[in-house]
Design a protein around this nucleic acid. Sequence first.
RNA 1: GCGCCCGUAGCUCAACUGGAUAGAGCAUCAGACUUCGGAUCUGAGGGUUGGGGGUUCGACUCCCUCCGGGCGCACCA
Length: 551
Amino acid sequence: MKKYLEQKILEALTSLSYTDTIPTLERPKLEQHGDVTTNVAMVLARKAGKNPRAIAEEIVNALRFDPGTVTNVEIAGPGFINFRFSGLFFTRGIGDILKQSETFGRTAEGRKKKTQVEFVSANPTGPLSVGHGRQAAIGDTIATLLEWTGHEVTREYYYNNAGRQMRKLAESTYARYRQLFDPLAPFPEDGYQGEYIRVIAEELKRSQGDRLLSMPDEEALEVCKGASEAALFEAIRKVLARMNVRFDVFFNEDSLYTSGALDDVVSELRTKGLAYDKDGAVWFKATALGLEQDRVMIKSTGEPTYRLPDIAYHREKFRRGFELVVDVFGADHIATIPDVLAGIQALGYDKTRVKVVIHQFVTLLRDGQQVKMSKRQANFVTLEELIDEVGPDAVRFFFIMRSISSHLEFDLNLAKEQSEKNPMYYLQYAHARIASILRFAESEGVLTAQEQNRFATADVSLLKEESEVALAKLLMEFPDIVLSSCMSFEPHRLPGYLGDVATAFHKFYHDHRVVVPERDLSLARLALCRAAQIVLANGLKILGISAPERM
RNA sequence: GCGCCCGUAGCUCAACUGGAUAGAGCAUCAGACUUCGGAUCUGAGGGUUGGGGGUUCGACUCCCUCCGGGCGCACCA
């Protein structure tokens, strides 16, 4: 619809010799303003110094439409041009939806651009938090949206298995292990307190007996590190899989150490005069790139800070040929981003190809009360516990339904409630209801059981009722919604749209019987139902949520 | 103190990135199908978009300022 109009308006503009202005088309908020509206006349008025309504009139007179498409064009308000399409224009689209079926909504906009989405990337030092869960839902949905818009996507987890954190992890496990033999054995002051460390230690005792006690400390720590890392990695992978999130690549941080990538970055920055030594440390001269202060890359102890591997890792992303790099980070990482971007720019890469998506935090609400979460205390809620409590579908849906820049309040009671209050059930219910109607139509002999050619003889021009056309119109917008949710990196638009689809469907269903004595009309309405089901199913698929046939 | 995010109906949030009369859900109140799923639908009330200035044909959106909340501001990640 928009593409068609854009084309026609452009033709009109060139015929009037208004060049280099691309009309922006919008769906008006008010139904009475038509199906699509444009403000080109007002934009042109500013440039041309003419009355916007006069320009609008010129444009309208120059427009030529194919018969049976646009039924009304009018100039309104300060200079908007409003267009109304024929009902047939929308209902004809039902055929396309049925034909494209599970691919309806996909576009080729991305031109197979090689794209990486990095998300979660939590340290393997403990179980994932609910915050990581939000990031998993956001990252995976963005990745899927990018796939649907024709990008070639790699889902990647940057796995911080190097540095001090891992050392601390090994020490913690080792201490717990020793405590299994000697309850008085000391535990490091800043060690990881969590119960999961004890579990790993017990597992170690089962598989290794007391062997570690007789080893040199360093060797025992290596064993502990390996065992802890493997156990935590497995736990992380498993929880994410329960949320329907799977990664293509786990990029190991320690590979940057062994491959020499870190040294390369430092020496390259040195030759560019962007690194220097001070107080026994190696500094990144970020101020030379317009940032506020210089930062340490290598501590006086010889260990790199996180900043250096982050820069090296981003360079690897470019070296691996990614044309678009999407980083999904929590709000607590905001401060680190400018340094990394400055770093890769200094190394000669185009930082505008990195899109950083920052999401705000999550608070849990139970019985109207905020659940206080603290890692120290026992009331820390893990992602796994959240999934246990409300189920994976609700977890994903609730994490994605708010704009990512907003603080998210996760209402546990609502997420568990199986009623009309829960917006996720509203969608799933619409899908299941359609499935039920189709089953009914089969049992009545209106539809054949096999999907092929089911609607071959359906005559959608019979769909003339207001709620029929309204639903068809909304369904046709799905590809646009997928595209705009993707390009703006605002996945929350999708659940919002799907809610509108469900509402439009329920209204249609309420207004009209689907299976009626007239077989042709039944078939046309069933085609509309099926099209709505396809859009709901595809939308839920993108969100990683199940689309039940019954509930 | 500095940087980023947020502040919109009683509550949770939208508003297509500067467009027309700021919209949904929940909650409240009032209604609707004797056959396809009532986990549905229709309607009503509810607002100085945190306050104040500015930019322009036009501001929830951009700029300045103040207030309130969150997150950062390491030789932690």
